[in-house]
Design a binder for these strands. Structure first.
Length: 879
RNA sequence: GGGAGCAUAGCUCAGUUGGGAGAGCGCAUGCCUUACAAGCAUGAUGUCGUUGGUUCAAGUCCAUCUGUUCCCACCA
């Protein structure tokens, strides 16, 4: 009969995607006739494989882009990848280790050549995976953070910031990862709570008069102590200030001063703090204030350096143990206690961070932060939830200078050059001579830039900056930046201040922060736990549409989403429902019927007017929800409409008309009209199936992707039709309920007698007889002119606009009927009492909106009429 | 230490200007009704975490407590 398969099969997705690509539907170009709409993809790392988080974020962005594209915007979704400095370098180092090589052994150039090879081999993996899930990025514009153009942007930005004095080089305390052997920024430090030990020791005064005791969690840093500090107003120690104490760990001991600084908390511990400027941020500050010497005691690998005397060469842990032992031997160890405290660790490798003083490059943040903060406080930059804006503002308010140099090779090499004399020349183009002394023998800085430096420029570097391009003019600032909460300070903040700095404007107007996809128990998915879901496995089994629908449907965008397979099955089932609804329409077209699209809507049957009115309202709701970035709600509304209203009610209602050659064309017209609208509305969420079905339904159409988005039309609103059909649905539900309750066999046809409450209802029911018959599984519908004489074996049912009688003879137990009707009587009486209570409430009458009061009054009238009928039925039974 | 979120049906969750509690899954019952059993129909289940406050009206706003999750953080 039909060659369309009975079940939906997602295996054609690749083919559909290829066709879109081929036809260039994803491409966007400067077009003054259209308004621009742009989203810059958060570039995935080249080391990444598509995980469920990428898939979720991609789905969100793709919905927005596809909807806006259909709405007539020139919609650009800019794709690309990030070089992911440390992550990539670590991966490649691992790879070459298997060949017995080290990066130092290979040398910088050979190693980088190797990373580029690696990038070429694996860098496109993630891109292809994005395609697999239907992302409609403009792939012809794909960028990479280390491609030529972006490299130029990075150098330009560095040079300008340096020339303005915003980038400086200095010895500062930085976060040092002894495993990766590089500095990392504050944002990359994770604090992990763990059990630690607090050790209490004493130092003797140099004059031998007394001792002073203190506590530390890191005894090994005692090797770098250059002072002991107390609070200036602490009377207990007033006499000690200015005296010397002895750090005993060295052969001759080292004398260090007792200083007074208000940083010290008198209440905490003994009120004494040992000061190690080289290895603690606070101590560093105090060291600067008191001009204390800075003694670095640690090598880059975390072992004790030559300043550690007898401890030189030991690891951190070994040195700690030995110091405790030695202090104990000297009688200066007091006690140790277990405490909970947070340790800073590297977010990539989870190694404990060592604060070290190093010569590094920094970006001065104070001035850059101001306009970025202002952009938010002025309301220009918006977050989808205020609390995310607060996180943003809090970060900017507490910002410290950004350490931008990294001691790794993979990345943008810092464009600073040194001559023999040590002069620094910074230039985006490799200089031939020193800017200070003219020396020509120049050596470039070994360090590279933090990977986020180039990402910070992404919204404009991808559009051609520093060149003035028409793309920049047109698409910048972009519209939405979609990402997860933890990226706010890594990236969002930095894009904004760089955008303000170099473009004079925010990079995007809306920041959309979404939740995390977690496993079925609410746990974060992680490789080590092994609870991760591979999105490609989902695509393999159920298709990309089902994956996308699962991630979006019904989820509040800012809360975490639990992923479990039953949800995917539901999505798949919905795809199948949609598939079959369309298949049903197509089957009806197979006899050559030509649908008639009734332009004169008021002339259409009430069920058509109802579904058109309903679909019209849906368009408004969905459009509003998408504009508000509430995609879960938008999706759910479409799904509910298609399944509940369109399939379960409307399609059933028109079946009788489809069997009649005369009424069929018009019914087909409305079916196709409404279904096509649904497919358009759903297309951003499930692009593949909607394309397939839309083209099957609209033979002349080229694609649904570029079809105009449906628009809300106030003239199509038909509250009367909605009310009428609601009455009919209630009647049908009532009859079905009775059938089910009385266990009338499905095969048994029944007669439904309807006594309408007035002429208008009579007219309505008589129009709808054909489908009421089908929906109630009745053999006959009788429209009565008056209430029938009550009799045994008849069930009566009071609904809005009618009393319905079902002669079911022996199936009816009159006693049970009386109970049922009495229950109904009670319910209606309660409703009326409730409304009367409200209407008698002076406060309510005075302050509630008139609309609401009118609605309550109308309901009262309705309930009263129903109650009257129910009571009449009861009275009839008593007779 | 500071901040934020969440707590609604057995499970997972919607419920954004305060106006008579919802969905999916699961469960029960009956159906292969020629689009779909990946389906259809019918049904049962909630003191909307606690206590208080604002209001004519609170799942919704405010406060408190309890439980839970997350983020930030240099207290030795």
């Amino acid at each position: 009969m039909t060659n369309i398969p009975k079940h939906y099969d997602p295996s054609r997705e690749d083919e559909i995607y290829a066709r879109w690509l081929e036809r260039g539907y994803f491409n966007a170009a400067v077009n003054e006739e259209r308004a621009p709409y742009a989203i810059m993809i958060p570039p995935p790392n080249i080391t990444d494989k598509l995980h469920i988080g990428h898939a979720f974020n991609a789905a969100v962005q793709d919905v927005l882009i596809r909807a806006k594209r259909m709405q007539g915007y020139e919609a650009l979704w800019m794709p690309g990848t990030d070089h992911a400095a440390i992550s990539t370098e670590v991966q490649v180092v691992k790879a070459i280790a298997k060949e017995g090589k080290t990066k130092e052994g290979m040398g910088r150039e050979a190693f980088l050549a190797r990373v580029w090879e690696w990038q070429e081999e694996y860098g496109s993996t993630i891109v292809n995976q994005f395609k697999k899930i239907g992302a409609s990025c403009d792939w012809e514009r794909e960028r990479f953070t280390m491609d030529e153009g972006l490299n130029a942007a990075v150098l330009e930005a560095f040079e300008r910031l340096y020339n303005e004095g915003k980038i400086y080089r200095g010895e500062r305390l930085v976060n040092w990862c002894v495993k990766c052997r590089t500095t990392i920024s504050d944002a990359e430090v994770e604090h992990e709570d763990g059990e630690g030990r607090l050790y209490h020791f004493s130092y003797k005064l140099a004059d031998g008069s007394s001792t002073i005791s203190f506590a530390t969690t890191r005894p090994e840093t005692m090797l770098g102590d250059t002072a002991v500090a107390v609070h200036p107003e602490d009377e207990r120690y007033a006499a000690f200030v200015g005296k010397k104490v002895i750090v005993p760990l060295f052969e001759k001991g080292r004398e260090i001063p007792v200083i007074a600084d208000s940083y010290v908390d008198r209440e905490y511990g003994t009120g004494v703090v040992k000061i190690t400027p080289a290895h603690d941020p606070n101590d560093f500050e105090i060291g600067v204030r008191h001009k204390l010497p800075i003694i670095n005691i640690m090598n880059d690998d975390g072992t004790i350096n030559e300043n550690g005397g007898a401890y030189t060469g030991l690891t951190r842990e070994e040195a700690r143990a030995k110091i405790i032992a030695d202090m104990t031997a000297s009688g200066l160890f007091i006690k140790e206690e277990k405490i909970n405290h947070a340790k800073g660790t590297h977010d990539r490798c989870h190694e404990v961070i060592e604060p070290l003083v190093k010569l590094q490059w920094f970006l001065q943040m104070e001035e850059l932060a101001k306009p970025a903060l202002e952009a938010y406080t002025s309301g220009k930059l918006k977050f989808n939830r205020e609390r995310y804006g607060k996180i943003y503002a809090h970060w900017l308010n507490n910002i410290r200078d950004w350490c931008i140099s990294r001691q790794i090779w993979w990345g943008h090499r810092i464009p600073a050059y040194y001559c023999e004399a040590g002069h620094v020349t910074v230039s985006k183009d490799a200089p031939v001579a020193c800017g200070t002394c003219g020396a020509t023998d120049l050596r470039q800085d070994e360090d590279t830039l933090d990977t986020w430096f180039s990402s910070a420029l992404w919204p404009f570097s991808t559009l051609g900056w520093p060149n003035k391009t028409k793309e920049l003019d047109y698409f910048y600032p972009t519209n939405v930046l979609s990402t997860a909460q933890e990226i706010i300070f890594f990236w969002v903040v930095r894009m904004v201040f760089m955008g303000m700095k170099f473009m004079g404007d925010i990079p995007f107007t809306h920041v959309l922060i979404h939740g995390t996809v977690v496993d079925e128990h609410g746990k974060k998915m992680s490789k080590s736990v092994g609870n991760g879901i591979d999105p490609l496995e989902v695509v393999e089994k159920f298709g990309a549409d089902a994956l996308r629908l699962t991630l979006l449907n019904g989820n509040a965008i800012d809360s975490n989403t639990r992923f479990y397979w039953e949800r995917v099955e539901f999505s798949r089932n919905f795809m199948n429902k949609l598939w079959n609804a369309t298949r049903f329409v197509l089957m009806n077209l197979e006899d050559g019927s030509v649908p008639v699209f009734g332009e004169n809507i008021p002339a259409l049957p009430v069920e058509d007017r109802w579904i058109i009115s309903h679909a019209n309202a849906l368009v408004r709701e969905v459009t509003e929800k998408i504009d508000a970035h509430e995609l879960g709600m938008a999706t759910q509304k479409i799904v509910d409409f298609i399944w509940d209203e369109f399939c379960d009610w409307y399609v059933e209602m028109v079946k009788p008309r489809l069997r009649n050659a005369e009424t069929k064309p018009q019914a087909l017209g409305t079916l196709i009209r409404v279904l096509s609208r649904c497919l358009k509305l759903l297309h951003p969420v499930t692009p593949f199936i909607t394309e397939d079905l839309f083209l099957a339904l609209n033979k002349d159409a080229e694609t649904v992707m570029r079809a105009p988005w449906p628009t809300f039309d106030a003239e199509k609103e038909d509250p009367q039709a909605e009310k009428d059909i609601e009455a009919i649905k209630e009647l049908v539900r009532g009859v079905r309920n009775i059938r089910s309750e009385k266990q009338v066999p499905p095969g048994q046809k029944i007669t439904v007698q309807i006594f309408p409450s007035d002429e208008k209802m009579h007219g309505l029911f008589s129009q709808c007889v054909p489908f009421i018959l089908v929906l109630c599984n009745a053999s006959e519908i009788e429209l009565l002119g008056s209430a029938p004489a009550s009799g045994e074996g008849v069930v009566s049912l009071v609904v809005v606009g009618a009393t319905v009688y079902l002669p079911l003879a022996s199936l009816v137990d009159s006693e049970k009927e009386r109970v049922r009707l009495t229950k109904e009587q009670k319910r209606l009486t309660q409703e009326i009492t409730r409304i009367d209570g409200k209407l008698a409430n002076e406060g309510y009458m005075a302050k509630a909106p008139a609309q609401l009061i009118d609605a309550e009054r109308a309901k009262r009238v309705e309930f009263a009429a129903m109650l009257e009928k129910v009571e009449a039925e009861l009275k009839g039974m008593v007779k």
